[in-house]
Amino acid sequence: MPLIKDNSFTKDHWTALPDGLPLAGAVDAIISFKRLEQDWDEISLHNGRVGVLLDNSSDAEALQPYLDRLDLVVLEFPVFNDGRAYSQARIVRSQLGFSGEIRATGDVLPDQAGLMMRCGFDSFEVSGGQSLEVWQRAANSLTLSYQRNYPKVGEKPRHDRSERAAAILTDTDRAGAAL
């Protein structure tokens, strides 16, 4: 699957490792959350980087004990209008303070990418036919937003809890945004 990051196609260095296959070498491996929990002792000693795939009915907070060792969290959109992963990303990024990569996989459409970025996603697995030009235009088509406690489209994801901002634009924000 093509991967988009920072509005460009990018090489995917990660390998999705199906449950049951051995974790060996220095490969950057994406493993299921179930396996992560079961084989944590082994996984924590892995030479390569570790990413986790969390399905969208699982509790995102359960990732907390492992986050320091993780470089990637992959969240799923089984269909584009199943929006649970927006909240999962928000929890991982903002409540758990994860600073690594959060990737969207599944039915990932350009018109939803702006919202995903604001919830903390920063990479996107898209379908084969995706035009980059359409992606860039759609993903960045609405850069203004009212919710200051979520980053704007294109703004660096906030994971530092000290950066508390209002859930609504204040007068000061408005003055700045109108410039």
């Binding site: 209008n81 929006g83 909240s87 702006g114 919202l115 009212y146 919710q147 979520y150 609504i168």
Partner: peptide, 16 residues
């Protein structure tokens, strides 16, 4: 009105 603004294209709550 505050809720209108806050809910307008909310990043997290648009695919409920």
């Amino acid at each position: 009105e505050l809720l209108r603004q806050w809910s307008s294209v909310h990043p997290e709550f648009t695919f409920l």
